[in-house]
């Protein structure tokens, strides 16, 4: 029963330091055409700032959500946090160990086991040529968690049962499962090495609503049971509200507002957050007066100068067009907005 026992509840003293600290994280991608084309066509280098100056922290057993539309950089941040993409600037510190510090190689390797990820598309995140039990067993074998094949099989069975699947179905291939069942397999794989911290990148956006409810409920149950910490990436505000303790809103690679969930939904501060909340069609809020939303997300390759949101912002003034706002603390929230800073809204 090693799967269940080793995830002991954290001690009270441990809660003092956040489990995950993301400091000034940034990533620039080179999206230029090949060198030869640039030379012959006289094109400049094109850089895409997928994320910049992203700072937040996540406490143990907490769910921190990043929301944003396409091109907001939320998935890039998720991949940097788990170490799949190297950051251009800043660092990710997990349990006091910097993930970009070469000196702590051994510590980092040990940390690997404690961080896992659940991906968006359960059709792409499971190798179609592998049986479910081999998929779930891979981390067990890679980290040498199970001592023998029999032990591996036993643990895989427990894991499958844990996520609500029949262990006998382990011999099936991914295409024989429904979307929700596949996401359960992906969750079982993520749980296999007893992680403390799981990054969930849009885990339910490829699923139907009733299946989404099953998966969200399962994730919350698992969090309670094993004391998991989640970084939850989503574009769906209702899902985020249901799952998160604290929320960060991203726009064009920057965190524009970070606030406790309740506060954000009761009193959104940043004009973009307000606009998002207003734009979501919701069953219980039909018939409300909606402010017309203007414009679309600009191309992140050449973002507007100053505050990136200013072309769509009803409160933008001259300062917003030239000067990037810095994060300020108001109430329980951190906001990047000149209008909020100046008390105009």
């Amino acid at each position: 029963m090693s799967v269940m026992t080793s995830a002991a509840p954290p001690l009270a003293s441990e809660a003092a330091r956040p489990l995950v600290e993301v400091k000034n994280l940034g990533r620039v991608f080179d999206v230029s055409k090949p060198w030869l084309n640039r030379l012959t066509e006289g094109l400049p280098r094109r850089l895409l700032t997928a994320a910049a100056e992203v700072t937040f922290s996540i406490n143990k057993r907490e769910t921190f959500a990043l929301v944003g539309e396409s091109g907001s950089g939320k998935s890039t941040v998720a991949k940097m946090v788990v170490g799949l993409i190297a950051p251009t600037t800043g660092e990710v510190i997990i349990d006091g160990v910097s993930m970009s510090d070469r000196r702590h190689d051994a510590d980092r390797r040990r940390l690997r086991r404690r961080i896992q990820m659940v991906f968006q598309d359960p059709y792409a995140s499971l190798n179609p040529r592998w049986r479910a039990l081999d998929i779930v067993a891979e981390p067990l074998r890679a980290f040498g968690i199970a001592q023998s094949e029999a032990e591996t099989a036993k643990q895989v069975g427990e894991l499958l049962r844990l996520v609500g699947l029949d262990p006998a179905d382990g011999t099936k291939y991914p295409h024989e499962f429904s979307g929700g069942q596949r996401q359960r397999i992906a969750i079982a794989r993520a749980l296999a090495c007893n992680p403390e911290f799981i990054v969930c990148d849009e885990p339910t956006s490829a699923l139907d609503v009733s299946v989404q409810a099953q998966i969200l409920n399962l994730m919350r149950d698992l969090q309670d049971r094993f004391g998991l910490t989640y970084l939850f990436i989503s574009h769906n505000l209702a899902v985020v509200r249901h799952m998160a303790n604290r929320i960060g809103v991203m726009y064009l690679g920057r965190l524009v507002e970070v606030a406790p969930a309740r506060e954000m939904f009761a009193k959104p501060k940043h004009p973009y957050t307000r606009m998002l909340l207003d734009a979501v069609p919701d069953l219980d809020l039909t018939g409300r007066k909606r402010k017309p939303v203007e414009g679309e997300v600009p191309n992140p390759v050449d973002p507007p100068p100053g505050c990136p949101f200013h072309p769509r912002c009803p409160f933008a003034n001259e300062r917003c067009r030239v000067e990037m706002p810095q994060p300020i603390l108001t109430g329980g929230a951190t906001v990047r907005c000149h209008a909020v800073e100046e008390g105009r809204i």
């Binding site: 139907d208 299946v211 409810a213 919350r220 505000l237 209702a238």
Partner: peptide, 24 residues
């Protein structure tokens, strides 16, 4: 009924979503 209950809402907190067992 199950479908409506399984949709998370912006308007109020819910501890657990209504869950329809199984799949289509």
């Amino acid at each position: 009924k199950g479908l409506m209950g399984s949709i998370p809402s912006l308007a109020h907190d819910s501890d657990r979503l209504v869950q329809i067992p199984g799949s289509m």
